[in-house]
Design a protein around this nucleic acid. Structure first.
Lengths: 216, 216
DNA sequence: AAAAAACTTGACGACCGTGTCATGTTCAAG
DNA sequence: CTTGAACATGACACGGTCGTCAAGTTTTTT
């Protein structure tokens, strides 16, 4: 929480390749372990073992376990808004929303570990997210909410609260990554397959766009 | 993981009130701590402090930290299917589904801590859920899936995969408990209010029943 | 009222995880 | 080739946590 100076000089100087490579290894190992066992359940010794480096070497690059955790978060924030790029006023809402769902589910399937890590962090009350990062999330959401409002104004969409609407899409798409084990159980599979993700996308898109009960 | 014998005799004998009261205290304290800091982040010392008992006394009732965790889970499973009771073939799907959403959101609001604990456990791959508990969840879901299939057969509902449909409802309703902090951030609140939950229910019900984009 | 069972408690030991240190090795540059 | 910086590593100190123990106190039973 406090110490963050040490190899800073090296970090800012002409970034050496070895450092880049090793930091990458450490972070990659860490995200998986943190996702599986959370912060306290993960030991630096394990991070070292998984990344193939001796423990002391891990401490050479990162002053503390917390700093590793923080570094992982920093990377994840970047991925957060990628899928959001589909939500632009020029596109037809039906098509844009369908694309968004597909993109988000795809992300869940391919980056399940990162997704679980992130969920974990939010679940804990986002203790490691700093003010800047939280504000970033809020701003990006605001921006896309305006797009939905624009669609509604034009009569292309039924009036809905855009923020709750997004929450619904997030939660459903994340579920398959975060609670994949439960989803698999319920679907009677050992593990979720690509087909399951396709079925999920189809069901979700259908319901979100047209509802499930026809019209009275 | 292995030790589970000790005060068993007492447990099975004419259950004393003191035991009941103290176990209750311990479990209540534990669920909050586990939800906040997960298994490894929670120390028995804290459980003791929060429950107002000395640590040794906690060990008098529970042989190990893991056994406390397991006991908390056992209680939660019971609450899992409560809201599901709305999903019965006799009711109109529109009305039953709306009631289900309301019940589940209500549960999220009032038992946010338990919900977060449970989410946490699933996130970790449900390491502490035993075979029987997992099967129970699956069976209950199966049962309610049949109801949806019946509705579809009767033409009261658009054809959808019932399991993915339920997953969508679970995820959206749970989100407000599990990721409440993020939801509050996005909505620009400090904490989620009752009004936010009402708005969430309205948005969700509207979308799930009738979609968001009219009909082509 | 006496005995037994249930409960409560402070002190303690063994273990383990974080983070440090002093020393050795590889790399980049003059 | 030499020199200094970046990198790698084994051993260790320190602190804290799980779980135990033996000795007390209260409640229940006979």
């Amino acid at each position: 929480m406090t110490k963050t100076k040490k190899a800073d000089a090296a970090q800012e100087a002409t970034a050496p390749r070895i450092r880049a490579r090793n930091e990458e290894r450490i972070l990659r190992a860490a995200v998986g372990l943190f996702a599986d066992k959370s912060f306290h359940g993960t030991h630096v010794k394990e991070i070292a073992k998984v990344s193939g480096l001796p423990k002391t070497n891990v401490y050479y690059y990162f002053p503390t376990k917390e700093s590793i955790y923080a570094a992982v978060i920093e990377r994840l924030i970047e991925g957060w808004d990628r899928a959001f790029e589909h939500i632009v006023p020029e596109r037809e809402p039906r098509e844009a929303i369908a694309a968004y769902i597909r993109a988000k589910l795809d992300y869940s399937r391919r980056h399940a570990t990162e997704s679980r890590f992130f969920a974990n962090e939010i679940l804990r009350g986002a203790q490691f997210l700093d003010r800047r990062q939280r504000q970033h999330i809020r701003e990006v959401t605001d921006q896309r909410a305006h797009v939905v409002e624009e669609w509604i104004r034009r009569g292309q969409m039924t009036p809905v609260d855009p923020r709750h609407f997004f929450i619904m899409l997030w939660s459903a798409t994340q579920f398959y990554a975060d609670f994949g084990m439960l989803a698999a159980d319920v679907l009677g599979r050992r593990r979720l397959t690509r087909k399951d993700f396709d079925a999920a996308a189809e069901t979700m898109t259908g319901i979100v766009l047209d509802g499930c009960c026809g019209h009275p």
